[in-house]
Nucleic acid binder design. Structure first.
Lengths: 215, 215
DNA sequence: TTGATCGGTGAGTAATCACTCACCGGACGA
DNA sequence: TCGTCCGGTGAGTGATTACTCACCGATCAA
């Protein structure tokens, strides 16, 4: 019944992976509706008909891409290491550098934005895997540091969003809007981290600027 | 030769405006390639053929939208007022509230993102009108306050991007990724402003955390 | 050798796309 | 009353789309 040897199954899997990779680049560059199945086939070096042997519809191919791509976790473990040592500086520097690092490819960010804008069903899941973990983890860490008195009292989720916001917005400007970077990324990272951590430190003098909590 | 009375010219202009408005909503919701001219016509309540009487191509209609939309400047004057009085708190609160305000419609942000992602020729101009002015103005103000000793030394452009980054990212999460807001926007704004301004204040003690400038 | 089962393709198909064109009806000056 | 614009439309046009199908050649167990 099934003559699928190991090698043929490998070859089949390779084809599938190559299709996913080619399609991901095209979808990231031109969006779902902006990419044709003929282009995908040409980019993968096969006929258009073969695409539909591996994926029943164009949308299924798109879904397979979003479901597969979720590369992180090697970062999270490094961050956790620093978090245990309460090295705030390095915790935030790691996260920022990871996102701003020069070689980071824009594919993921563009794919994420396109999927959210075009309202794909899996966009939420994609966002969850790619970003939500950072917010939750960061918010938890910030809460801990507040409890320990290292940070001043602040909504930890908002603080986490603020930091990720700086960093992601920076990528957005650079990769999507082609705004040129006028200084090396290390400086960018350290400036953001410094700005953020300074903003979180408890004031030595009991500060009195009532506008913060109540309007 | 020209029997175009004032009223007819008005009617013509109204049609055009109504087409632009209908099309803008659709383009914002589904992108350029995701929107059909038939849909635009139906949304405006006219025949598809009429769309092409007013705009030679679908792309020309899109271009007209981007070229027209640029609503701000009433904000900038209010900000300048506060800037003259060196009311940092209010300067940044104004800018943040303007972008986070509850009634702000997501059309502009989505249009901006779509145009940048889809690589429209006018995307840069659109971005310039909608956002660049803020960066330049803010960076200038921050530089002034640094010179006056009110803020610590920091790259003013990066600082401006950091602040706008927090705010825009917040909108992005809310409007594009449907992340729920867990607290009222006034609190969000004041938290961000407080975080940012605290991060900019010169340290009373001569601080010594060498990581900031050199890697 | 046979024949069955693969991976792979060229040549379609129906639907949809942006865009065109011949034509309509009513307002208006003569 | 007549002619002439002019805003507006229904019914197309060719091109492109996602997707299908009949078919090919290589491989390999029997």
């Amino acid at each position: 019944m099934k003559a699928t040897t190991a090698s043929s199954r490998n070859a089949s899997h390779d084809r599938q992976a190559s299709l996913i990779s080619s399609a991901a680049n095209l979808f990231a560059a031109k969006g779902f509706k902006g990419t044709t199945t003929k282009e995908i086939a040409k980019a993968a070096g096969v006929s258009e008909a073969l695409v539909f042997k591996y994926f029943p519809t164009k949308r299924a191919l798109y879904t397979a891409i979003l479901a597969e791509k979720a590369p992180l976790s090697e970062l999270l473990s490094a961050v956790e290491e620093c978090a245990r040592k309460r090295d705030d500086q390095r915790v935030f520097t790691l996260i920022a550098s990871y996102r701003i690092r020069p070689g980071a490819d824009p594919t993921m960010l563009r794919l994420l934005l396109f999927s959210a804008l075009e309202g794909h069903e899996l966009a939420d899941m994609f966002f969850g895997k790619q970003h939500r973990v950072f917010y939750d983890y960061l918010a938890g860490y910030i809460q801990t540091r507040i409890d320990e008195g290292a940070f001043r009292a602040i909504d930890p989720l908002l603080a986490a969003r603020a930091f990720i916001g700086m960093v992601v917005h920076h990528r957005l400007l650079h990769e999507i809007f082609d705004v040129p970077l006028h200084c090396p990324h290390e400086d960018v990272v350290s400036t953001y981290v410094e700005l953020f951590l300074t903003g979180l430190r408890p004031s030595s003098t009991a500060k009195k600027r009532g506008v913060t909590r109540v309007r």
